[in-house]
Design a protein around this nucleic acid. Structure first.
Length: 480
RNA sequence: GGUCCCAUCGACUAGGGGUUAGGUCGCCACUCUUUCACAGUGAAAACACGGGUUCGAAUCCCGUUGGGACCGCCA
């Protein structure tokens, strides 16, 4: 298959999956599946100082939980591996040497301090800060001498001057950049590791990547990459730079202004389907007057095209996510929802082994939940030993004559029932109405308050069933 | 500061020469409901500005303004 589409998601293993990364991963996955191509995971761990233990496993499991899978990668394997860049060091060195030999790269020996000073001066002059290419002037003898004396070195790209690099980005369109402002990028660091730029180009080429789909923050380094491809005599893959996900103040989505890790959202009880649906619609939409808001992964795969990716950034709007998550919670299969809600019932005083009860409670309260971690806010009425009333007005209402009459009647009715259900509670309360003449607000309000301690909440019959006969009787008897 | 990118309701967006500029979230009102919520109905709410091109511009071009990203031996 020569025309097979191959894309890659290439995160650095920093420990968690950023919402922005999630969207990049999603778009890559969607694009690959839409075209029946391959989705590849590559770990960009060339920065030794940023290694985090267990990060890769965490990353893969987070993504897989959301339904984003890979056809090749560190766990899955594949014939283009290894998929850890730290296992590919020899490969990068080889191509770096090629670049050195064909005159497209050179040695440089500046210290960190020298580079800092260079930038400081440039800043003073109001120029773009970049390496001043002074290493290009070193003679072969000078270079050999420095090398021989063991001075630390890096290898830099020799950017051809006075040219214009053009490329056609699949979402941004035509972009051109003058090579004079392209930095002589470091290719190989003094620790022998490649930089992102070199490793990226080499790997994308060797792994036969056809489309590079990544965040817009990379767009300014595309010319460097193109120059490397060119210097190595390789074809440049198609590029698609997707716009950023933004904070409410329009800056790049960052930790300071809320949660940015996918794990945080999962932990709070956002459903994976809602998260995927919401993220997909951030910066992409099917267009053509389509007004649908809810998409399954399958539907997304079918509809996804790069042409429909937005050109401008999108603010991450938590209100809309909440609304969408609530919609999913309301319509989710109740048994499945019950299972995934179990952790959120821990510590509420409700026996989580009683799945039937959990299910009933969830059915009653799911309409209130924007996310599962709000469950404890709504289950208090089901575990309270007794109802405490701070409000004197409510107390008065419960001790009113009509309330007493209604309570007495209701108690009698319920005592004849074996097992209290929503249905027989309903008929019991109906009987109370006809027998006592107490009805409407003056009936329902006191009962609600007596049972739940609150003026509002889920439907009374449901509450009664969940509370059970004994508990309902107890609560009612307090007021007669 | 330099380079690049971007610009429709508060937010996500549809529309891409002729539309009452449409939908969704949020906000507000009303209806339904014993309550809250849900649901339903309705309202308020946008083409950043200035020049062109054109019979006609939100739509095409240029400029201005505004916003953002990048400018590391991080990715």
């Amino acid at each position: 298959m020569t025309n097979e589409i191959r894309v890659r998601f290439a995160p650095s293993p920093t420990g968690f999956v950023h919402i922005g990364s999630l969207r990049t991963a999603l778009f890559n996955f969607l694009f690959a599946r839409h075209h029946e191509g391959k989705n590849i995971l590559r770990i960009e761990d060339t920065d030794q100082s940023r290694k985090v233990d267990g990060a890769v496993e965490n990353l893969i499991s987070s993504l897989e939980r959301l339904g984003i899978t890979f056809d090749e990668g560190p766990v899955t394997g594949g014939d283009k591996g290894p998929y850890y860049q730290s296992d590919r060091l020899e490969i990068y060195k080889k191509y770096c040497n090629d670049l050195l030999e064909n005159g497209n790269a050179y040695y440089a020996f500046e210290t960190q301090e020298e580079l800092d000073e260079m930038r400081r001066l440039q800043q003073l002059e109001g120029k773009q800060t970049m390496y001043d290419r002074r290493g290009r002037d070193l003679s072969a003898d000078e270079v050999n001498q420095k090398l021989a004396s063991g001075i630390p070195y890096v290898i830099r790209l020799k950017v051809p001057l006075g040219e214009e690099v053009r490329f056609n980005d699949l979402v941004k369109g035509n972009i051109k950049i003058d090579t004079d402002i392209v930095d002589d990028q470091i290719l190989l660091k003094s620790d022998g590791f490649p930089t992102y730029h070199l490793a990226n180009v080499v790997d994308d080429h060797l792994m036969n990547i056809t489309h590079i789909i990544r965040g817009e923050e990379w767009i300014t380094s595309v010319p460097k990459h193109i120059l490397i491809y060119r210097a190595l005599g390789w074809d440049v893959p198609q590029m698609a730079h997707v716009p950023l996900i933004l904070n409410p103040d329009k800056s790049k989505l960052s930790k300071r202004q809320g949660d940015v890790a996918v794990e945080d959202y999962l932990k709070k009880g956002y459903l994976k389907e809602a998260l995927v649906n919401f993220i997909a619609l951030l910066g992409w939409n099917p267009g053509e007057g389509e007004e649908k808001e809810f998409y399954s992964m399958e539907e997304l795969i079918k509809a996804f095209t790069l042409e429909r990716v937005q050109t401008s950034g999108a603010v991450f709007n938590i209100d809309k996510l909440n609304w969408m998550n609530n919609s999913y919670i309301k319509s989710y299969d109740i048994d499945a929802l019950t299972e995934m809600s179990v952790p959120f019932f821990e510590g509420t005083g409700i026996d989580t082994n009683d799945r039937d009860k959990l299910k009933k409670i969830l059915s009653a309260i799911r309409v209130y939940l924007n996310k599962l971690d709000e469950i404890p806010n709504h289950v208090g009425i089901f575990v309270n030993e007794s109802v405490v009333l701070d409000d004197e007005k409510l107390r008065e209402l419960l001790t009113a004559d009509s309330s007493k009459i209604a309570f007495e009647s209701l108690i009698k009715k319920i005592e004849t029932i074996d097992s209290l259900t929503a249905d027989n509670y309903k008929s019991a309360i109906g009987d109370v109405q006809t027998e006592t003449g107490v009805k409407g607000k003056s009936l329902f309000k006191p009962v609600r308050i007596a049972l739940s301690g609150s003026e509002n909440g889920p439907e009374l019959p449901a509450i009664a069933e969940i509370l059970g006969k004994d508990k309902v009787l107890d609560l009612l008897k307090k007021w007669i």
